[in-house]
Write a protein that binds this DNA or RNA. Structure first.
Length: 437
RNA sequence: GGAGAGGUGGCCGAGUGGCCGAAGGCGCUCCCCUGCUAAGGGAGUAUACCUUGAUCGGUAUCGAGGGUUCGAAUCCCUCCCUCUCCGCCA
């Protein structure tokens, strides 16, 4: 949520900033509602004050044994007046709230103009895509042929290492089954990433629920606007499967007030499955692991002082890039343009890994700074020791990395002519082998 | 699933209809005292919003939402959560 004070003091400036992302802010409607709200609020509070002071008098009179009947008569009409004023106020506040919570965050100045992903701007590139002296297979074909001999497991294999048919049978489209070396590689990647972030990058590992309530989804900005992207349980508690670990982790500080800044920055890493209905992307990436309804992710979340959030985004992005560098996977980093940036984000870097079969870079991590946008929705605050005042925290998060896409990138980039996959050096201790067959 | 007890400020905890935004304690801040440390004395210390140049002032908030009442932390209803015991169970 944007700062209502800023919206009031500089509506034109806010509207201009939001234009960059193609959002039209109805400044006049908001102002009209807010002006009304102000009048009614003042009226309501005056009535409340009257009621309170008269009620106090009744109490006093009663205590001293006086007759309270005339006093009761005085407040007779107050109640209905107050009720109607209060109702009007609530209605206005609701209308304003409904508008405000649907307004996206303002992109910071560095965010480039543009309308979609084609307008994102590359900021750096690392590594050189390998040249192959044989015909490159994609991870689907590679996975289908792996694990077929019984030599790499106990007994005969029930199927291939990467089996989309089995996923469809058990559940439906966009679900996969992994076996043998690929399943192990998947697990190794999770271990490896958490180890690097917690041992080398100063992150604390946490484990969180995979089902969350509506308040949590509101706090990070998925609700109320993006309900159709989520899987919802039909439980009466209205629980949702998490679309990303960002939701449970960031909400750890919902409704919290840190008494100083000594705990900051708070840097958390967590591994969770993620569930997305992919409602708006029926025809996209239907082949392979790129876009599944269920995937796993190692996620980093930062809570920082406002003055530190811009640097924190650079650091966090570097932590994600470090994983790709250790895995020796070529990547490029882009800054998202105004039209492609997420609802809650003020600035986002996407990291894209090289995918040989597609001959292009594909998103493997998205690192965002939200400023105080999420913190305001969540009431996540700290007391600034310098001023003694409470301030909203700044929140950031980034994938470090998406496991399924990393797996796919390793399979394709490390494939051999015979269809086997070399294990990246840093994963060999986790895998107990240097090749997957 | 059954029975019971609870949810109050940064934390602990008192408060069963009115001068209660809330005693007391801890913590924190400032001052005094003090070779250092420790102990001690004094003052202050919720959040959000409205109003104001800033104070002053006002409103709301005692798990959440409704209700009763002139007036609710306190009474009633619904829901959520925590704890104890029993049952069941990975």
């Amino acid at each position: 949520m944007l700062d209502p004070k800023l919206l009031r003091s500089d509506p034109a400036g806010v509207a201009k900033a939001l234009e960059k992302r193609g959002f039209i802010l109805d400044v006049d409607a908001i102002k009209a509602l807010d002006d009304q709200r102000k009048v009614i609020q003042i009226k309501t509070e005056a009535l409340q004050q009257e009621r309170n002071s008269k009620s106090k008098n009744i109490g006093k009179a009663k205590a001293s044994g006086e007759d309270i009947a005339p006093l009761l008569k005085e407040v007779e009409n107050l109640k209905s007046q107050l009720n109607s004023a209060d109702e009007e106020l609530k209605s206005l506040q609701d209308q304003l709230e409904t508008i405000l919570i649907a307004v996206p965050n303002m992109p910071v100045d560095e965010v480039p103009e543009g309308k979609d992903e084609d307008d994102n701007v590359e900021v750096r590139r690392w590594g050189t895509p390998r040249t192959f002296d044989f015909e490159v297979k994609d991870h689907v074909d590679l996975g289908a042929q792996l694990n077929l001999s019984s030599s790499n497991g106990n007994g005969a294999s029930l199927g291939s290492a990467l089996d989309f048919d089995a996923g469809s049978k058990i559940t439906g489209s966009r679900f996969a089954v992994m076996r043998g070396g690929v399943a192990r590689l998947h697990r190794a990647l999770i271990q490896f990433m958490i180890d690097v972030h917690s041992n080398e990058h100063g992150y604390q590992e946490v484990h969180v629920p995979f089902l969350v309530n509506r308040d949590s989804l509101f706090g990070t900005g998925q609700l109320p606007k993006f309900e159709e992207d989520l899987f919802k349980t039909n439980d009466e508690r209205e629980l949702y499967l998490i679309p990303t670990a960002e939701v449970p982790i960031t909400n750890l500080l919902r409704d919290e007030l840190l008494q100083d800044d000594t705990q900051l920055p708070i840097k958390i890493v967590s591994h969770t499955p993620c569930f997305r209905s992919e409602a708006g992307s029926h025809g996209r990436d239907t082949r392979g692991m790129i876009r599944q309804h269920q995937f796993e992710k190692v996620e980093m979340v930062n809570f920082v002082k406002p003055s530190e959030s811009m640097q924190a985004l650079e650091d966090l992005t570097a932590c994600a890039e470090a994983i790709l560098e250790k895995l020796e996977l070529p990547y490029r980093t882009v800054i998202l343009c105004g039209g492609d940036i997420g609802f809650s984000s003020a600035k986002t870097y996407d990291i894209e890994v090289w995918v040989p079969s597609q001959d292009k870079y594909r998103e493997i991590s998205s690192c965002s700074s939200f400023g105080d946008f999420q913190a305001r929705r969540m009431k996540a605050r700290f007391r600034n020791p310098e001023t003694g005042k409470t301030e909203l925290l700044h929140t950031l998060n980034g994938s470090g990395l998406a496991i399924g896409r990393t797996l796919l990138a390793i399979m394709e980039n490390y494939q051999q002519a015979d269809g086997s996959v070399t294990v990246p050096t840093v994963l060999r201790s986790y895998m107990g082998t240097d090749v997957i067959r």
